[in-house]
Amino acid sequence: MTQTLRHEQAATSPRMPVRRLADREGFLAWAMLLPAVVYIVLVVAVPFGLAVAFAFSDVTAGDPSYDWVGLRNFGRIFDDPVFWKALGNTFVFTAVSMALIIVLGKVLANILVAEFHGKWVVRFLVLLPWTTPVALSSVAWLWLYDSIYSPIDWVLRNLGLIENHLYFLGRPELATASVIAVHVWRLVPLAAVIMMVGLLGIPTDVQDAARVDGVGFWRRMFEVTIPLTTPLIAVAALFGAIFTFTDMAVVYILTRGGPTNSTQVLSSWAFIVGIEGGDIGQGAAIALFLFPLLLAAAVLILRAVRRIEVF
């Protein structure tokens, strides 16, 4: 009798099919993943596909009609010395910024995990550069580097360290350093927070045991702390590399690639050629050179994340 009732309830209850779907892990997995997949397809895969298609076309800003031109766009960019300069700069800016971001991020992380009054205020202030929109902070730096009104320049002159204006953005070597400095300034906080998480994850008894054994600060740093936080340091480094490699706002706002294209990077040159110059096909071909390194970085990040899971 009871069994009959259950069957009747099962047959009549409208909630049963829902419950069955909710119980099916395979269905749930796809249902949960679908929004993310759709999102990635729409904002990553489609634009990427378009960029590849445009790179082999003669599409311009004023004529969206598609005509296949084969490798002509690539031939033209290979003949252009500015492209090679931009490619080299992209790697140099990324490598130097990444090295500085790791070192300074580690130092900052060590400070932030220490106990001191006002730690939360300091943590908040330290994070500000990262939370500020990059375009906004770049405009602020543009004023800091201004040829007339630069406060950095003013301080150095009043301290007697320099006699004349430095013209931060008017000299290639200083302009390069200025761009790298902004990248480091805005990405060190992110790296520091990521590394701070790693430091806080180290069991205190490990550190205590090292101290009891009389291990000094530097030895603990290089033989205990860094090995135990290496996966997170790698994640911080790779995030820093990706954000530097793909950014065009800092260069575009500070120097527009100048002087004489000496600070041009792939993304800014692709923008100038593709949008300001109107040659979208060639701009897309330039931008495609960002892809191999980004792919490698993505693979490395995923491998580092797996190491963290194992760890």
């Binding site: 201004d146 040829s147 007339i148 009104y149 204006h165 013209y167 931060f168 953005l169 008017g170 000299r171 302009a175 120097t255 527009r256 100048g258 002087p259 004489t260």
Partner: peptide, 15 residues
């Protein structure tokens, strides 16, 4: 001076 290599649309005005 080298500032002319970092000229932008408002540099004339500022200077």
């Amino acid at each position: 001076t080298p500032e002319v290599f970092s000229w932008n649309a408002s540099s004339n005005n500022q200077g």
